[in-house]
Design a protein around this nucleic acid. Structure first.
Lengths: 252, 252
DNA sequence: AAAATAACTTGATCCTGATCAAGAACTTCT
DNA sequence: AGAAGTTCTTGATCAGGATCAAGTTATTTT
């Protein structure tokens, strides 16, 4: 009992009902009693450090995981040694949904910084959802939302220019940080340019050049991983794909 | 009662237990009694004709749909009038999963040819899955599988060359036709070159040129929508992304 | 603190696949 | 059957972004 303070802090965070993320997370829309029941099957382990794997492709699937702090990259290792980054996940987000299918992880998940997670043993979750219609409903919604997000990403990769991709990427983080009570316009990205490029289907160099260009156009200020969005409305315009002419299109 | 024959034919197909697709479809893995219960909530309407919409983005979501014959294209209409084709669906495949999320269809689905579907009212399916763990399990699996397929598609669009994309596309149909008891090497594609290109993130012209090139290399024979795969192993090699040198790489 | 390594930026060049353009083959309509 | 509209193919050109190359700035190691 060397550090009682830390222990008691842990105790506060250790239940869904005291967790600030519960409105974003699995307990969303559940009654307090239901949250309590859900809480009883959740396991909270030690935090992961940067570079630790939460799971790897091929691992036996047993639990879904919710990020509670830090951030995680999911990726699918492809045959020829390379990888496709599938997503970057912030607190409150659920990962591992793709593994339900055949009881094996098809993707890998790695911590981008010190990261804590809640583990939800899937077989228990499944049993619980069988007797808790609201939880079952929530699960269907979350799975469906994941599908919806993937299809948005398909449009991004299939139809959008490099500029549109990076703007979309930045605004996605802006919105998600805002949801979590952080600044929508001033944040740190925990992944490298290389990882951003991989995720967006672009070369590192292209990503780097775009950051520079956006900065030159006063859309943002960037210094390494620290990003400050200076003109969010214009970034949204870029996302729309209105092939923006010169800043001021009024000539004559 | 003008045509008794047709009516009786319909009666044969009208139940899951008599449906040849049941091993691919929602009833997969269910006991006969459970299939019976599932069957009781399924609605079978008139067939759709080429160009008919099964639903449109924005429509209220009420049912999942399984294609029983024909084929369907799903797409998400994007702001600027264009569209992103999200998938081509064959008999046994379930569509509408993305709409569970917020009770509205985000995508549209259109028949590519005369197409019959089973409609499964989602609220009833949800209730039923609440009291039928095997059905709930099957739903989780199907939703998860959809996510897995989407992430494969992300890799395709993010990392693969035009050649790799078309080869992947063709082999996907080959496999799916085979699963359904049709030829893996001789089939008709029900969609246009334009739709293939849109789906694969390529221009129509590129798709057309690739068909020609594959034919020149004796990988397939193609005549309009009729495709015959002549060298499936080599197509798989292309998918792997081994940047194939000349046909015979043995020079000296 | 220096050295080694990794991450990022910037410039130059190249290439894949898009776009533009035109003709051919097929389908649909009357 | 002929006209009109699609869809597909093929050729020529163009461009967005990849790749190659080198230098700069951080970070980690010793």
């Amino acid at each position: 009992m060397t550090s009682r303070k830390v222990v008691s802090f842990e105790n506060i965070k250790v239940a869904c009902k005291n967790c600030s993320l519960s409105t974003l997370c699995l307990p969303m829309g559940l009654t307090p009693e239901d949250v309590e029941r859900l809480d009883s099957i959740i396991k909270r382990g030690r935090p992961y450090h940067r570079g630790d794997h939460l799971y790897r492709g091929g691992d036996k699937f047993h639990s879904l995981r919710v990020i509670t702090s830090g951030s995680v990259k999911t990726y699918s290792p492809n045959e020829d040694g390379g990888e496709q980054v599938l997503g970057f996940h912030l607190p409150g987000e659920l990962i591992g949904l793709d593994a339900i299918q055949d009881d094996n992880h098809t993707c890998s998940a790695i911590a981008l910084e010190t990261t804590a997670v809640c583990e939800i043993p899937f077989s228990q979750l499944e049993s619980l959802s069988s007797i808790m219609p609201s939880l079952q409903h929530q699960m269907y919604r979350l799975l469906s939302r994941e599908i919806g997000q993937d299809t948005e990403m398909l449009t991004l990769l299939g139809k959008k220019s490099a500029e549109e991709r990076l703007a979309t990427f930045l605004l996605s983080f802006s919105e998600r940080f805002k949801q979590r009570g952080f600044s929508a316009s001033d944040f740190f990205l925990s992944m490298s340019r290389h990882e951003i490029g991989n995720y967006l289907g672009l070369a590192v160099e292209t990503v780097s050049r775009l950051f520079t260009r956006f900065q030159d156009e006063n859309l943002l200020h960037v210094e390494r991983k620290h990003v400050q969005l200076l003109d969010i409305p214009k970034l949204y315009e870029i996302v729309q794909g209105t092939d923006r002419a010169k800043p001021s299109q009024s000539r004559i």
